[in-house]
């Protein structure tokens, strides 16, 4: 049986194809301004990569904030359930998932079967998320994918006190003006995200193992800062950005077969 999961996020749209519990292929595209077009693009790309045709796909489940804009989906499930399901599939020992995506962050507690038992989401604003890092990277003339390496060069961390994207940006500007080395500013930004996320995680209560998913988990600077702040080891899957789509594909399989994943 082949199932697909499509995660239409605020910044990226990801698709995963699954055959009998094994990942056949995945794709990651920019969401841009049209959620529906992005979903179609991601789906076409993943089908092409796997070399299979649309008719071979049994069930499609959509997730992410644009989950309602995927006309070819057979069902819509929230990204909270999908990240939970995907994380448990990748590592059955996971009990806490920290997902930092493009515009929100969440902490999810799981039972031993990949079921969500509790969750918290960030406040309405996008502070401390992927979008926050994009704005800061832009100001520092870096790309978001090089922030992790820049952090590794730091000998200390600059203090960033505000978590509001607008105010933090002006703090960064004044740090630049004071001649603070760029790596230290980057580490300061990572620490400020870690503090905010750890606060939310501790409010819910974390239980090992902790897995981090979502695009921001690709940044080793944030992962390290968060691990230090939580005093816990954090597992990062090889491709953290597709965990939501993977979970959706797993739920699609469950829907189709009526069996537990």
């Amino acid at each position: 049986m082949i199932t697909a999961g499509i995660d239409v996020g605020s910044l990226s749209t990801d698709a995963v194809l699954l055959r009998d519990g094994e990942v056949l292929a995945y794709s990651i595209v920019n969401t841009g301004a049209q959620a529906r077009a992005a979903a179609e693009r991601a789906f076409e790309e993943v089908l092409e990569k796997a070399g299979i045709s649309l008719s071979e796909v049994d069930t499609v489940v959509a997730t992410g904030y644009g989950r309602m804009s995927v006309p070819f989906a057979d069902g819509q499930v929230t990204e909270i359930s999908c990240h939970g399901r995907g994380s448990a599939f990748l590592n059955p020992e996971v009990r806490t998932v920290i997902d930092i995506g493009g515009q929100d962050s969440k902490v999810i507690r799981l039972d031993g079967q990949g079921n969500v038992i509790d969750f918290l989401m960030n406040d309405k604003c996008a502070a401390g998320t992927g979008r926050f890092l994009e704005v800061m990277a832009d100001r520092l003339e870096l790309s978001v994918s090089t922030l992790g390496n820049e952090d590794l060069k730091a000998e200390g961390a600059a203090e960033i006190s505000s978590m509001c994207t607008v105010f933090a940006e002006s703090e960064v500007i004044s740090l630049i003006a004071r001649g603070i080395p760029r790596p230290e500013i980057v580490r300061g930004l990572h620490r400020s995200i870690a503090e905010r996320t750890a606060g939310m995680a501790n409010r819910l209560g974390i239980m090992p193992r902790v897995m981090m998913t979502g695009g921001v988990a690709k940044n080793p600077g944030v992962v390290r800062a968060l691990s230090e702040k939580l005093g816990a080891e954090i597992v990062v899957p090889p491709e953290p950005q597709i965990v939501g789509a993977l979970g959706a594909a797993l739920i699609a399989r469950k829907k189709r077969s009526g069996k537990a994943v």
Binding site: V77, T78, E79, I80, S81, V116, M121, D123, K124
Partner: peptide, 30 residues
């Protein structure tokens, strides 16, 4: 389990609430 929602007493921010409420109902369903 308790789901927390915060508003400014206005009918706005519904899409963000949609994800929270739907995820909560999925959790209750499980």
């Amino acid at each position: 389990p308790v789901l927390y929602l915060e508003t400014e007493y206005r009918d706005v921010g519904l899409e963000q609430a949609r994800t929270r409420i739907q995820a909560y109902l999925e959790l209750l369903g499980e």
